[in-house]
Design a protein around this nucleic acid. Structure first.
Length: 489
RNA sequence: GGCCCCAUGGUCAAGCGGUUAAGACGGCGCCCUCUCAAGGCGCAAUCACGAGUUCGAUUCUCGUUGGGGUCACCA
């Protein structure tokens, strides 16, 4: 069987990571079986139209490495792939069902529908009362002729129960009287989302419908349509939701659907914060799916590896919580895996901002790579290069190195002249300092501590004293060393 | 509220009747070490509860509790 899956986002200008994960799983489901992945744009809601929103979808998928075989931009045999361009094809399908007695015209006004709801017993929710389900042919004809607005509703089965199978959740059964006579065509002539979805999925040959578990309870309605048309019901794969964790005003930890208050939830937001596309994809791939077999216990996956390892059996049923800490860790792992070119191209914008010269690139990569989990942290990590304040002299005191104000002053006094005469390369600087320490029978730490502090002016630096001196350059290093020395009295 | 779904450490999770209940993130400790990281080693921490079924339940069934989803002329 040739698998065809689709991603059918609405162009809202924003790609929620939950949506992206759905797209990823749809993509992986198809790719793992050498199937076809289709992109369809669901833009029927003109009110929600956002300029450039479809570009956000294209860009996101491209950056994320989720490539589609068919879609508005690449074409395909099942087009058009933009729903607004398909709008004329839905109504005939609905009218076909009316002819076959499986659907009917409904002339009820919105006011009447509201009335039904209002009069419903407290705390209950009632659906449509099927008022127009059994209008006589004459009544329908007369209403139509009179130009009374109408919708087309499907006649749903009223007794018995329906069961369908989901690859993740198993068999799901509901009573048929739960099913409302759903609207297929709205009064404005446009199809409802559910109706258009079924028509599109069928006419595009979609074999596997992959979507969030919020569709679990409305799936019987979709199936009623497939059955009315005599079409094959697709294979269903419902995905557990992604939640976010937050603390409410009472200090209680609560979990709810991932949203803004949990942090960034948009793919582009995460990118802007410095998360790498591959890391985001890798992370969300593992949110709700667990690799098995030879891939068990593995955390880092390239897209190709995900395609190979992906297995529907590994999808879990229970919702998961988006963990920014783990994403952060994973991002760091991707950074450590980077080659020099890739590292540089990511770091360059931050280097440029600091006015860093090319001859420092190699050293910076070495000291930064294990220390950052996002490239955006570079600015902060290297801030000591620009700022050299009147730092607190107590920084010279360090118990473990046995460094004190006094020892610092003495050592700086000795070391400054030595450094001022030496070549400014890593080996020489290190030799000078360790040589001095050896000669004085000091531990290296006792000497390196005050030098590093004096040069950086902060307690924590990426790299040790030799690296700090190199990054600063000889002139600036000597200037700072002397200034600190004089401040020590 | 009706209906549907879910339930293993703080988080992601393996497990698919018999295990010392994996692994990862995070936390903690130790080692390494000129700071901070990285790296290495180690520790703490989980089967929501109650009945069954069974020689034996984390695993199967039912119930309870908790959580989520869904009930539009929205998508």
């Amino acid at each position: 069987m040739h698998i065809r899956t689709r991603f059918a986002p609405s162009p809202t200008g924003f790609m929620h990571v939950g949506n992206l994960r759905t797209a990823l799983y749809e993509f992986l489901t198809a790719r793992h079986e050498n199937g076809t992945f289709v992109l369809r744009i669901e833009d029927t809601d003109q009110e929600r139209y956002v300029e450039g929103a479809t570009d956000v979808i294209y860009n996101t998928l491209k950056i994320a490495g989720i490539t589609h075989d068919e879609g508005p931009d690449v074409g395909g045999e099942y087009g058009p792939y933009v729903q607004s361009e398909r709008k004329d094809m839905y109504k005939p399908y609905a009218e076909q069902l009316v002819k076959e007695g499986k659907a009917y015209y409904c002339f009820c006004t919105k006011e009447r529908l509201d009335e039904i709801r209002k009069n419903a017993p407290e705390g209950t929710v009632v659906g449509y009362d099927r008022h127009c389900r059994n209008l006589s042919a004459e009544e329908v004809e007369a209403n139509l002729k009179a130009g009374i607005p109408y919708v087309i509703r499907q006649k749903m089965p009223v007794e018995g129960e329906s069961t369908y199978h989901d690859l993740v959740y198993g068999d799901i059964t509901i009573k048929n009287d739960e099913l409302d006579d759903q609207i297929l065509i709205k009064a404005d002539g446009f199809p409802t989302y559910n109706f258009a979805n079924v028509i599109d999925d069928h006419s595009m040959g979609i074999t596997h419908v992959v979507r969030g578990s919020e569709y679990l309870s409305s799936t019987p309605k979709y199936n009623a349509l497939y059955e009315a048309f005599g079409w094959d019901i697709p294979t269903y794969i419902h995905l557990p939701l992604i939640n976010g964790k937050s603390v409410d005003e009472n200090g209680n930890v609560t979990v709810s659907k991932l949203s803004k208050r949990h942090g960034s939830t948009g793919f582009m937001d995460l990118i802007n914060e410095g998360f790498l596309p591959q890391a985001i994809i890798n992370y969300i791939a593992l949110l709700g799916w667990c690799p098995a077999g030879e891939y068990e216990n593995r955390e880092i996956f390239s897209m190709d590896e995900l395609i190979k390892a992906f297995d529907i059996n590994g999808i879990s049923k229970s919702p998961s919580v988006f963990d920014y800490d783990k994403l952060e860790w994973m991002n760091g792992e991707y950074i450590k895996l980077m080659g020099s070119d890739e590292f540089l191209s990511n770091a360059k914008p931050f280097y440029d901002e600091l006015g860093i010269k090319e001859d420092m690139y190699a050293l910076l990569e070495e000291i930064l790579k294990p220390r950052i989990t996002r490239f955006t942290q570079i600015t902060e990590k290297l801030s000591f290069l620009k700022a050299y304040e009147q730092f607190d002299l107590s920084l010279f005191e360090h118990k473990k190195s046995k460094s004190t104000i006094e020892s610092s002053k003495a050592i700086l006094g000795d070391v400054i002249p030595l450094l001022s005469e030496c070549n400014w390369d890593r080996e020489t600087i290190t030799d000078v300092i360790t040589g001095y320490a050896a000669q004085k029978e000091y531990k290296n730490a006792l000497v390196m501590w005050p030098v590093r502090i004096a040069a950086a002016g902060v307690a924590v630096t990426p790299g040790g004293c030799a690296e700090v001196l190199l990054l600063l350059g000889k002139d600036e290093s000597m200037r700072r060393l002397n200034e600190a020395y004089s401040r020590l009295g």
